[in-house]
Design a protein around this nucleic acid. Structure first.
Length: 589
RNA sequence: GGAGUCGUAGCUCAAUUGGUUAGAGCACCGCCCUGUCACGGCGGGGGUUGCGGGUUCGAGUCCCGUCGACUCCGCCA
């Protein structure tokens, strides 16, 4: 059987007169009783097929029975469309194929949802993912993903990086996210873990003299899901020896330049903006600020240095700050929205959310009665307050005030529907992250990035003197439009320094040897300085594809509860299987 | 673990203050139709209003519970 000579998007005016065979799916049928039109679709596009009873009666009579999503092979002659019936919406719209023979390869049941439109019922889409993938929108996403991955591979290859696979079955570590575990049949009672990231392996590759490594790596984290989080996801994992952060930035910028040029035809400007973590928090209240709009956090502590207003006074006396944002033109906010914003602020640790609406030349607010005339004047000046503005306040410890207003800022932008150019790409490097953060609940220090991150040389003394919270790391994130799309760091390559960091994290010597002995040993045999970065490929593709959810750029994603609805995984297994693995289930079903 | 939104025909959605037999478009089935491209015309079938309970003369609508999906918080070195 000869299936086809070309795709359903190929035929042009130049092909007129050719005898051609096409295969594909019936996208729509327009049966006029006599002449019948079929739109034949494959992943590349559509071609209009014409059945003419007066020329090919057998094919035409068979065509009456065609239905949506039947798979057919059609042989015929390429002809110019009748004058005035060309279709500019189709690449092939100048021509059509006059069917001489029709082979129905496989009939389709009536599809559970139409292929043409954007469909809301995601459950249904995921259950019939093989049909969902036929929708041109999804086809485009999957193709885009291939293109982007290919470009990334090419760029890294040109730059001397080797693609190397690391184990999927590896060790569980207590740090970080919850691991997916795999029982080890050959070692009863022991377990592999699926990698949260190839972190240690890639560092050991550097010790192994590989110099430049990358991997399109599947990573696994057993945590709750989100629109931009799947239990298994893909990272572009990159590591290099004898490299500086600046060189890594330049590499990634070059890569993105090429990705956006070739995948979307956009020239992006490099180098990307760089901002310290401290500045990002201070100005935007986020470690991944969306730079496509302003609404910056202003520090207004000095204006209120002598205030008697309890909330502000309390914050200042507690070594805190008073910060504010001006939501321009949003005095029209509803009381329901104010309430939601207050909840948002509280969820970030704030005690409440004070506000001023500037309406009809008046300041409407429960708190202005506590302000002096001077304070009002200075506030108005610093925040450039005008008729119609909404001012929102945060008074707390610096971290809390910033974080709370940062979240409020995003929610306000959402409410205001601040017009954002779809093409705008606000790239940003956030640098100098803190090395450690204190976890009140666990009463210990945690690594902000991971335990292998290098402290800044100039801050090593703080490490020795125990001012752990002030130590900055050689760590960086790359942010696009307020979404963290990657992060990395320069690593520790000295045994002693690594052991000190482990100790600071509360990992004693015995545990160090047990959990990370291989790494500490490796560092004793001439480990080169090295560093790297990992990019979240799913998030990156979803941004390029203008998709809200990474599920739309993954062929077979899992739903909110980690289930893959098409195959129904995860599923129960036989008691027998468990016994072989030396495990029992404690679940009551 | 918590909060919110949603759940009506295969799909997308409607149904006034609680009020007749729960509607429309698309899809599907039948008939007609020789230049459409979301073809058109005529006719038809299709509903446990997620599920369970309650209030009421009467519930898609109100109340309680429950299940599910999605979004967010926690969590995600």
């Amino acid at each position: 059987m000869h299936y086809r000579d070309c795709s359903c998007a190929s035929l042009r005016v130049e092909d007129i007169g050719r005898s051609v065979t096409l295969s594909g799916w019936v996208a729509s049928r327009r049966d006029h009783g006599g002449v019948i039109f079929i739109d034949l679709r494959d992943r590349e596009g559509m071609t209009q097929i014409v059945f003419r009873p007066e020329h090919h009666p057998k094919a035409a009579s068979e065509a009456h029975s065609l239905r949506s999503e039947d798979v057919v092979t059609i042989h015929g002659e390429v002809v110019a469309r009748l004058e005035g019936t060309e279709n500019d919406d189709l690449l092939t719209g100048a021509v059509e194929l006059v069917a001489a023979t029709l082979h129905v390869l496989n009939r389709s049941e009536v599809p559970p949802f139409p292929m043409e439109e954007r469909i809301g019922n995601e459950d249904l889409r995921l259950t019939y993912r093989y049909l969902d993938l036929r929708r041109p929108e999804m086809t485009a996403n999957i193709r885009l993903r291939h293109r982007v991955t290919k470009i990334i591979r090419d760029v890294l290859d040109e730059e001397g990086f080797w693609e190397i696979e690391t184990p999927i079955l590896c060790n569980s570590t207590p740090e970080g996210a919850r691991d997916f575990l795999v029982p080890a049949r050959l070692s009863p009672g022991k377990f592999y873990a699926l990698p949260q990231a190839p972190q240690q392996y890639k560092q050991l590759l550097m010790v192994g003299g590989v110099d430049r490594y990358f991997q399109i790596a599947r990573c696994f984290r057993d945590e709750d899901l989100r629109a931009d989080r799947q239990p298994e996801f893909t990272q572009v994992d990159i590591e290099a020896s004898f490299i500086s952060d600046k060189k890594i930035f330049a590499l990634i910028e070059k890569m993105f330049q090429k990705v956006f040029r070739e995948a979307r035809g956009i020239e992006i400007k490099t180098p990307f903006l760089r901002m310290t973590h401290q500045e990002a928090m201070n100005r935007f209240g986020s470690d991944k600020p969306d730079m496509r709009f302003e609404m910056e956090l202003q520090d207004i502590s000095s204006i209120f240095s002598k205030t008697e207003f309890k909330v502000f006074r309390g914050a200042l006396d507690n070594v805190g700050v008073i910060k504010a944002i001006n939501a321009k033109g949003f005095a029209s906010i509803t009381s329901g929205q104010i309430e939601t914003l207050t909840e948002v602020a509280k969820s970030a640790g704030a005690k409440g959310l004070a506000f001023i609406k500037v309406e009809n030349g008046e300041w409407k607010s429960p708190i202005v009665k506590f302000f002096t005339e001077t304070e009002k004047a200075e506030l108005s000046k610093q925040l450039k307050m005008e008729e119609g503005d909404l001012i929102l306040f945060g008074a707390d410890r610096w971290e809390t005030a910033c974080a709370a207003l940062g979240r409020v800022r995003l929610k306000v932008a959402e409410y205001q529907k601040i017009p954002i150019d779809r093409e705008e790409l606000a790239f940003l490097w956030v640098v100098d992250f803190p090395l450690l953060s204190y976890c009140e609940e666990e009463n210990r220090w945690n690594a902000v990035h991971h335990p292998f991150t290098r402290p800044k040389a100039q801050d090593e003394e703080l490490l020795l003197t125990g001012r752990l919270g002030e130590v900055r790391a050689e760590a960086y994130d790359i942010v696009l439009n307020g979404v963290e799309i990657g992060g990395g760091s320069l690593r520790i390559h000295e045994r002693d320094l690594q052991a000190r960091i482990f100790a600071a994290l509360g990992i004693n010597e015995v545990q160090q040897k047990e959990l990370f002995g291989h790494l500490l040993n490796a560092f004793q045999y001439g480990a080169p300085p090295h560093g790297g970065i990992a990019l979240g490929l799913d998030r990156l593709i979803s941004l390029i594809a203008y998709e809200e959810s990474i599920r739309d750029v993954i062929a077979f994603p899992k739903n909110n509860r980690g289930m893959e609805l098409m195959t129904g995984s995860p599923s129960p297994v036989d008691e027998k299987e468990l016994r072989v693995l030396s495990i029992t289930s404690t679940s009551k079903k």
